[in-house]
């Protein structure tokens, strides 16, 4: 039997989901050779992006505008981002600012 709290939670989740009927997709970005690969990635709001560091040194994936960012990712570590905004989401590595990438969110 559904409790009142469960019902409210379900409603909140329903309201919070994106209008599209498509299921959210999980994308992968490899951090390798001091590059985000792919450098440009087209995603939809609600999708998840998993960043995996394959370099020997720590990196981050951090929004240029500071709105989101990973912790330090050591070799082999992963971090995932749920895309909640639309537009070009530019990001970089805080330790190695020459490393840049963009999520193109529609």
């Amino acid at each position: 039997m559904l409790t009142r709290r469960t019902l409210i939670s379900s409603m909140v989740l329903a309201i919070g989901t994106r209008p599209s009927l498509a299921e959210p997709t999980t994308h992968h970005v490899d951090i390798m050779g001091f590059q985000f690969t792919p450098k440009l990635l087209t995603v939809s709001s609600g999708d998840r992006v998993v960043f995996t560091n394959r370099d020997v040194v720590p990196h981050t994936a951090s929004a240029v505008d500071g709105s989101w960012g990973s912790v330090d990712l050591s070799n082999g570590a992963q971090w995932s981002l749920e895309v909640v905004r639309r537009g070009n989401l530019d990001y970089y590595c805080q330790h190695h600012p020459v490393m840049r990438g963009t999520l193109i969110s529609s």
């Binding site: 020997v56 040194v57 720590p58 050591s74 070799n75 330790h95 190695h96």
Partner: peptide, 10 residues
């Protein structure tokens, strides 16, 4: 600080 971090990692 970056040198400390990266050279330690390597």
């Amino acid at each position: 600080a970056l040198m400390l971090q990266d050279h330690k990692a390597v």
